[in-house]
Design a protein around this nucleic acid. Structure first.
Lengths: 154, 154
DNA sequence: GTCCTTTCTTGACTCGTTCAAGAAAGCCGG
DNA sequence: CCGGCTTTCTTGAACGAGTCAAGAAAGGAC
């Protein structure tokens, strides 16, 4: 894979170019929806001795700069993805936690507008579809659900 | 307030009627969107010596039985509400974590259907609107945001 | 190359949540 | 109304993702 101009991306948003940040961005390029542990492991492929703290800091900086997006479904640790700026949502498997992308359900952003806003200034509508992935559906009840929340159609 | 027939509710879903469970349900009646700590405190108003563990167990049992619903926005501890079965969503303040109810944006359940399902069997579409509540908007930038995630219109 | 600022390393720590073992309470049948 | 079985609660320890803090190292502007 050609070296992504990740450095330019970083400079473009006013962040210093450091090895941990580059490694984190490239890790997310390879692993969409990686959780924090995955990111740490993957970043260490490029920078074997990065501290977990550096990864946390990098993820926070990248998230704040808008280069990555954080997703954190109930009962799962934080996950991150590089796909930002477009308008998409997620399907999450209740059993194994697998995440898949779903294009916006209704068309363009803002795809949803609340029926009442209670005076809030709304800047984002986050949509998570919950269900069972094909693999877990096939495995049936042999798998142990991680999030036993009762399915409440909403 | 007349004693709610919380006991019947519990029996109705096949759960034993215990003092902690009753106290938790009544606490959630008083405090919509209470977090775990609030529930523990509120339950102790009725049952001063309930263990936190009993509250966790009760919340888990009630959630599984469908009597309460768990909400857990990024960066905040789990919250619970009694309003279940109807079709509503939430607005969450990025600054102070306040939650308000919003009736379903599009009408009836299922209010959203994903444009692609990747073979998942979908049972719920969860919608969270992120923004700033009136109080925090007024307070301006003096408050410390708890979730600095960049607003990514989706 | 120098210097200032930001970022990384190291290591301890917090706090929500879970686990485990035994005691207590709910509930069913008689 | 009581025995007995099962579920639930108490107690106390443990877990783990994430955070905090102080000093060392690296980025980048001049």
């Amino acid at each position: 894979m050609p070296p992504l101009d990740v450095a330019d991306l970083l400079r473009g948003v006013g962040l210093r170019v450091t090895r941990p940040r580059v490694a984190v961005l490239e890790a997310l390029e390879r692993l969409p929806h990686a959780d924090t542990g995955d990111v740490i492991d993957a970043a260490r492929r490029d920078v074997p001795d990065v501290s977990h703290q550096a990864v946390y800091d990098s993820l926070a900086a990248l998230t704040e700069a808008g280069l990555v997006r954080r997703i954190q479904p109930h009962g799962h640790t934080a996950r991150y993805e590089r796909r930002v700026g477009d308008n998409h949502h997620h399907v999450v498997c209740r059993t194994c936690g697998t995440i898949a992308d779903v294009d916006c359900a209704t068309g363009e952003a803002p795809c949803l507008v609340p029926s009442q806003d209670h005076g809030f200034v709304i800047d984002e509508a986050e949509v998570i579809f919950w269900g069972t992935c094909p693999a877990c559906a096939r495995a049936g009840s042999t798998a142990t659900p991680r999030d036993p929340q009762t399915p409440a159609p909403a």
